[in-house]
């Protein structure tokens, strides 16, 4: 009698079906939704009350490129053989800024999420990843600027005017995947370390500055003393940027060796970052 009344009652009120996460796929879907919500939040915050809004993501790299190319090609007189310096610049600079921004934002991601992880149960790996995803979405807009600059110069030393239609552009997603894996690893590692040692915040900003100058972003590799040049191959950012420049600037399909080097660097960084993060994450809540 009473149970019948109960079911009638619940039927009438039609309670919302509570979401259940039994399978791996549904858990992944849940995490993905949180991830995209966080990225959406960051975007809304970034461009709230700005007139141009997301257009800034396109405009910014172009403006930076103009400043840098004026400084380095007119003041320092760096020249590249047969390729436009501005395109050389914007390629290095946009790729490098993915790493620089995602790592310095990822660094703070667990600290930022502190009030959150104290309140709800949520997979912590989402927070550093959200910063990387944010940078890549942002890069999607910046890439419009890169394409615009490439079209402006519409440049290919070998073929002349066939650059944008060429087949080797298909390798671009590959290098972006390598870079994403690399940045995620960095983000995991730095966010975990920052929870325990706030010094990392200060150290990392200096380190990124050093890295910026140690990578041929606005100078050609050839300006370095010959004895330093071989060491450059240990710089992952140099590898990723060279890969991208080979495709767009020189119209080459990157070699298998280049692919393997980039992938190995990315996976190694990811493995270290992920392991440190996984080991440390259960203690986060006590330190943030």
């Amino acid at each position: 009698m009473s149970s019948a009344a109960d079911t009638a009652n619940t039927d009438k009120k039609a309670p919302p079906a509570a979401p259940r996460y039994d399978t791996l796929a549904s858990r992944f879907k849940k995490d993905w939704y949180i991830l995209s919500s966080l990225v959406g939040k960051d975007f809304k915050r970034k461009y709230r009350r700005s007139v141009l809004g997301v257009v800034w993501s396109i405009l910014n790299p172009v403006l930076q490129m103009i400043v840098l190319s004026v400084v380095f090609s007119y003041v320092f007189r760096f020249q590249l053989e047969g390729v436009p310096f501005a395109l050389y610049l914007i390629l290095g600079q946009t790729l490098f800024s993915i790493m620089a921004s995602s790592s310095s934002m990822g660094l703070m991601s667990m600290m930022e999420a502190a009030p959150l992880i104290k309140k709800v149960r949520v997979n912590k790996y989402i927070f550093p990843l959200s910063k990387v995803l944010f940078e890549f979405v942002n890069f999607g807009f910046s890439f419009i600027a890169v394409i615009a600059v490439a079209l402006y110069y519409n440049f290919n030393p070998a073929e002349g005017w066939t650059l944008v239609a060429s087949f080797n552009l298909l390798s671009i997603p590959l290098v972006l995947i390598y870079l994403a894996i690399f940045c995620s690893g960095l983000s995991f590692l730095l966010s975990a370390l920052t929870v325990f040692f706030r010094d990392v915040i200060h150290l990392w900003s200096v380190f990124v500055l050093m890295w910026t100058y140690a990578t041929p972003l606005f100078y050609p590799l050839a300006v370095l003393p010959p004895e330093f040049q071989p060491f450059m191959k240990f710089n992952p950012m140099y590898q990723f940027i060279t890969y991208m420049r080979d495709i767009i600037l020189y119209g080459q399909v990157p070699s298998l060796r280049q692919n393997l080097v980039c992938l190995a660097m990315a996976l190694l960084t990811f493995a270290i970052g992920f392991l440190v993060f996984r080991f440390a994450q259960r203690k986060f809540i006590l330190y943030v």
């Binding site: 509570a18 979401p19 939040k41 809304k44 915050r45 009030p115 104290k118 309140k119 709800v120 149960r121």
Partner: peptide, 16 residues
């Protein structure tokens, strides 16, 4: 399924 009413408003963002 747990509904934790421990500290409410997780992730509320004042700007949004």
């Amino acid at each position: 399924i747990i509904a934790p009413l421990i500290e409410l408003g997780a992730g509320f963002d004042a700007e949004l």
